Computed example of a mutant assay.
Amino acid sequence: MTTVRTATINDLDALAELLDGYRQFYQQPGDLDAARTFLHQRFGQADSRILVGEDAAGKLSGFVQLYPGVSTVGLNARWTLNDLFVLPECREKGTGRALMEAATQLAREHGVARLILMTQVENERAQHLYESLGWQRNTAFYGYLLDVK
């Protein structure tokens, strides 16, 4: 059974390990210090909302990170569900579903009109989860990226 709660600065070290695993899932090199620094900035700037899943022993088993934004067309708040990660050994046990449901509930509590996310085309496991929770694939817009670095 997964318990979901808001992450705190006290979760920083364990959360950094999860973030590092998430980045490695997306073929980025492991860098625990950079993950820790990034999360420390998020807590310091309060520019994202992070929920964590805990197993029965209190060990973090996954996280979801949301970034607030707005829609000019919709004249409302929209949050980007930017990150969802569950430890491999905790998958297929409801952790991802619990995190997604908690993110949706948090958005409702804050009057957010829409959650949006993107996932890799090959990530069929995640797509199945999202669609089972009522998420709809966007077929009306193309996504574009521009590296400005």
Score class of each variant (00 low, 15 high):
residue 1 M to D: 07
residue 5 R to A: 08
residue 11 D to A: 08
residue 11 D to H: 15
residue 14 A to K: 13
residue 14 A to C: 09
residue 17 E to M: 13
residue 19 L to K: 05
residue 24 Q to N: 12
residue 25 F to H: 04
residue 31 D to C: 00
residue 33 D to G: 09
residue 37 T to N: 12
residue 39 L to W: 00
residue 39 L to R: 02
residue 40 H to I: 03
residue 42 R to P: 03
residue 44 G to L: 05
residue 45 Q to D: 13
residue 45 Q to M: 13
residue 52 V to R: 10
residue 52 V to Q: 05
residue 54 E to V: 14
residue 54 E to Q: 15
residue 56 A to F: 01
residue 57 A to V: 02
residue 60 L to I: 08
residue 63 F to G: 02
residue 63 F to K: 03
residue 63 F to A: 08
residue 64 V to T: 11
residue 65 Q to C: 12
residue 66 L to F: 04
residue 68 P to E: 02
residue 70 V to L: 14
residue 71 S to M: 09
residue 72 T to Q: 12
residue 73 V to L: 14
residue 74 G to I: 04
residue 77 A to S: 15
residue 77 A to C: 14
residue 79 W to D: 04
residue 80 T to M: 12
residue 81 L to T: 01
residue 86 V to L: 03
residue 88 P to N: 10
residue 89 E to P: 00
residue 92 E to V: 08
residue 93 K to A: 10
residue 95 T to I: 12
residue 107 A to L: 01
residue 112 V to E: 00
residue 117 L to V: 06
residue 120 Q to G: 11
residue 122 E to L: 02
residue 131 E to Y: 01
residue 132 S to W: 00
residue 133 L to P: 02
residue 134 G to H: 06
residue 134 G to A: 02
residue 136 Q to M: 10
residue 136 Q to K: 15
residue 137 R to A: 10
residue 139 T to H: 13
residue 142 Y to E: 12
residue 142 Y to D: 07
residue 143 G to R: 11
residue 144 Y to W: 12
